[in-house]
């Protein structure tokens, strides 16, 4: 257990380190580095001076890197060019919105994917199987943003759902639940978009995982024991099939971020994805840099959690 755990944690830290280095050098070596940013007309003389000191722009690159890491360790991601506020503050505000959206969408899509995938494998070769297969392939081929646009187009005109944002502009609420109801209304379409697109992939994974398990010898043993098909599915196939699925979901976490960015753009959801796109348009590089770092670290962290879940599910890893 501890060996596995240490290995995984070490691995995650190494990846974080790689991301930090990448993040630093990308923004230094490529155009758009702070050295040019100080010429940004939006900045006041004082803030230019502040940038210069904090990034140590007059010092050699390795020193600059150490300074960057030191600032990072203090939670200092710099100041937004556009908003003149600390990047960390801006990101934290938006992080929760993104987590809310990805969290709801991921949980729902995994559940839907597991149910559909198991049903398809269970009724392999029937109309249920083909339906799930074709639906999933179509969902996989559909661009998330386009599906969101279509849902938005339809939902806002036919169902009277809000066209975007997290809360109705200018609304005041009598109680907390009224506010959450409003959030729920705004969240409905983005979550549905996200869930359906990603459930397609999870259905495909789960279906093939369960089919692989059904071909295992211990399923034959279970059948020889006289267990009924449903018992075999419940007691011998589900947990075993969850293992490859957890791995795939973990590997897939990077892609779920892509979905969040697309959905946030379409539904103007005030999350990290929206922040990234805005900062690109406004050439607000500190925010872009910080948002990328935060997203990457979140995914690495989620991956670590998935590894821990895996070790909980698989006794062969659990006991070492």
């Amino acid at each position: 257990m501890s060996h596995y755990l240490f290995k995984k944690i070490g691995w995650a830290l190494l990846t974080v380190g790689f991301v930090v280095v990448l993040n630093f050098f990308l923004f230094r070596i490529l155009p758009g580095d702070p050295a040019r940013a100080v010429k940004d007309p939006r900045l006041t003389r004082q803030s230019i001076e502040a940038v210069r000191v904090r990034f140590g722009l007059d010092k050699p690159l390795p020193v600059q890197f150490l300074l960057y890491v030191r600032n990072l360790a203090q939670g200092d991601l710099g100041t937004s060019f556009h908003q003149q506020r600390p990047v960390a503050t801006i990101l934290v505000e938006n992080l929760w919105n993104t987590l809310l959206l990805i969290g709801a969408g991921t949980v729902l899509s995994i559940l839907l994917g597991i149910v559909l995938g198991v049903a398809a494998a269970w009724k392999s070769g029937t109309i249920i199987d083909y339906g799930a297969l074709i639906g999933s392939l179509a969902a996989w081929a559909t661009p998330t943003f386009w599906f969101g646009m279509i849902l938005l187009f339809w939902g806002s005109s036919q169902l009277g759902l809000p066209i975007g944002g997290k809360l109705t502009a200018g609304a005041s609420y009598d109680s907390w639940w009224e506010q959450w109801l409003d959030v729920g209304k705004h969240m409905l379409l983005p979550t549905v978009t996200y869930t359906i697109i990603y459930a397609g992939q999870y259905t495909l994974f789960m279906r093939s995982a369960v089919l692989d398990i059904f071909a295992e010898d211990y399923i034959l043993t279970a059948k020889a024991k006289g267990l009924h098909s449903f018992q075999i599915l419940r007691d011998h196939a589900l947990r075993n099939a969850m293992l490859p699925t957890v791995t795939v979901v973990a590997l897939n976490l990077g892609f779920t971020v892509a979905g969040a960015i697309e959905v946030e753009k379409v539904f103007s959801w005030p999350g990290l994805g929206q922040t990234i796109i805005d900062s690109v348009e406004r050439q607000d590089y500190p925010v872009l840099q910080g948002a990328f770092l935060l997203l990457a670290i979140s995914v690495i962290f989620a991956n670590l959690l998935a590894d821990l879940l895996y070790s909980y599910l698989d006794p062969r890893v659990r006991v070492t």
């Binding site: 010898d217 211990y218 024991k225 007691d235 698989d314």
Partner: peptide, 30 residues
């Protein structure tokens, strides 16, 4: 009839047992 009347010892027992369940629970099953 399976197992109650006709039981089978499969070749290569590793894969005949469910890796995520204890041996005891699998014996007790039928």
């Amino acid at each position: 009839v399976r197992w109650k009347n006709i039981a089978m010892i499969f070749q290569g027992a590793m894969n005949a047992l469910n890796p995520v369940r204890t041996v005891g629970s699998q014996i007790a099953e039928p």
